[in-house]
Design a protein around this nucleic acid. Sequence first.
DNA 1: TTGTATGCGTTATCAC
DNA 2: GTGATAACGCATACAA
Lengths: 348, 348
Amino acid sequence: MRNRNATVKRPARSGRTAPIAKVTVREVAALAGVSLMTVSRAVTQPDQVATATLQRVREAITKTGYVPNLAAVSLRTSQSRLVAAIVPTLKTHMFDTMLAALIEGMATQGYQVLMGQSDYSVQREDELLRTIVGRRPDGMLVIGSVHSKATRDLLAASGIPVVEAGDLIRNPVDMVVGFSHAKLGAGVCRYLAERRRTHLAVFSGDDPRAQRRNAAFVREAEKLSLPRVLVLQSPPPTSHALGRELLARLVHESPDVEAIYCSSDMLAAGVLAEAQVRGLDVPGRLAVVGTGDIEMAASLVPALTTVRVDGGRIGALAATMLMDRMAGRPVPHPVVEVGFKIVQRDSA
Amino acid sequence: MRNRNATVKRPARSGRTAPIAKVTVREVAALAGVSLMTVSRAVTQPDQVATATLQRVREAITKTGYVPNLAAVSLRTSQSRLVAAIVPTLKTHMFDTMLAALIEGMATQGYQVLMGQSDYSVQREDELLRTIVGRRPDGMLVIGSVHSKATRDLLAASGIPVVEAGDLIRNPVDMVVGFSHAKLGAGVCRYLAERRRTHLAVFSGDDPRAQRRNAAFVREAEKLSLPRVLVLQSPPPTSHALGRELLARLVHESPDVEAIYCSSDMLAAGVLAEAQVRGLDVPGRLAVVGTGDIEMAASLVPALTTVRVDGGRIGALAATMLMDRMAGRPVPHPVVEVGFKIVQRDSA
DNA sequence: TTGTATGCGTTATCAC
DNA sequence: GTGATAACGCATACAA
């Protein structure tokens, strides 16, 4: 059943009015019978203008449809009221909450957000950041971290407040809010070991963050003298389908595995689905732990035990730190480690 | 198990260089021993500059770390190379692919994307759009449609190319690419009727788009002389947990329902989970149809029958239409209806 | 309370 | 091939 693709009708774009883009303080001033500055003041500091004048100006603004040109404001004031955000990709759920919180936080303070997708490519990231610096944003959020040395230097030299978010890196360009992937990986390993699971596996994407978690997980298993951890990696993004596929493989190749740590909840959900199909009891026969605590985690069957990292909090913290820096206020903690939490439910 | 929140160390922000934000053509020109215009030309039209000069200028640019101020460029040229995108929310998967496609499409043409979240609030949307107009974007994408009359007029008058995406509305501000929610709702109803399901229910958010689908679904059922359709609505966003909750309610209140149309795949996934828990056979006892065809739909158990709308295609089409308009090229089809498709899998 | 002059950083235009 | 000048739209500084 397929709907056709068709052109339906012409749009009703009326050419009646002069484009607002061309309306400047000039026209408003002329219409209101005042000078440019009075209009400017009426907009930015209304209390400095006589009530009667203010009213006339406001009418003129309404009548002309005047909207101040922020490029001019930005040029004049050296403030863009713009914040840039770079994410690896928008196609996964991973960064949505962080971003949503940032955008919302900044919007309440009158800032707008410029978006960029690096697609996990350092080169894309570099190009992106260079273009963005041209906008003179008042602040920047980079999810993950800035990867190339040259760009790190560029940003450091630019004097633009930068928050690198999600990853607790050692040498931030400016500020960081994140968590330790190593602690997280080790923590999950201990959690499973405490619950008497000895044959462990890890399903994950092969991005750097996941790899750091995996490495720590494996190290911890060695420290606890557990059998060798089976690590299955795939190119990101990790998906539900991948979870099913990986479990299917595991069942054949290493049927003795008792617990799986998945680098995303979606991956874990796929594992649960495949386990259901195969009649594999979770958690009886197999324990499953996810990462992210996405909305569906709590209502899956069985409810998914997962590592919660509060993306919304990270985004909100980033917004606060940026605004402090932008306002010239001292930032008490330029490096903030946010916690993660293993949320115990039914799957492990 | 909770990691502490702590400050770890001071950041390594070196104050050594003059902020790039302050480097202008002036400094570059001085260093290269040329005029401002030569620098400007070296950047924008290198072939107009003698090779030797070009080289000197480029060295000077590298040495100073000069990055052109786009606010100034924008002011001077009346071109912002900025495109704005307004989404209801980033917290659901609904618009990710559309957005990702748009951002990618625009980025390849040297445009940057300004993001706004309206949170399904008309007032927020208005504020947002007004601020955004101040940036003089070269184009705008609004997911859904522009709701208030005043803002529609503002946009129409602004002369900014606008694409309203996702919704095939009747009187677009400028251009539209979308599908008919009414056709979709009716189509799903027929699909279920053809499969001998007579007692139908709809689970959905109460946003306007879902409501249009629901209304058409109900009308179609009446036309087919089916029993009254049970419609259960909740405030968006729809979620997995909500799907479970609604099915639980349904089982008590209307156990005779044979098919459910869900306004999102996540909602449908929740319904499948609850059905599994209750031992309700899907599709034997109950058919389930979702909306969106998100990645997990195909690997759910049972695989989810769903209505696919190609968000990536919509985003890409929007980007193309915007770029045509921005380049002054005629837009052959300012109103584009994209198809939807009912993807038959196992759940219905 | 209101107005005038000036400059933010860049490019269009015209002159050399 | 290169340079001088003006202007984009607005707000800062100061004068009235």
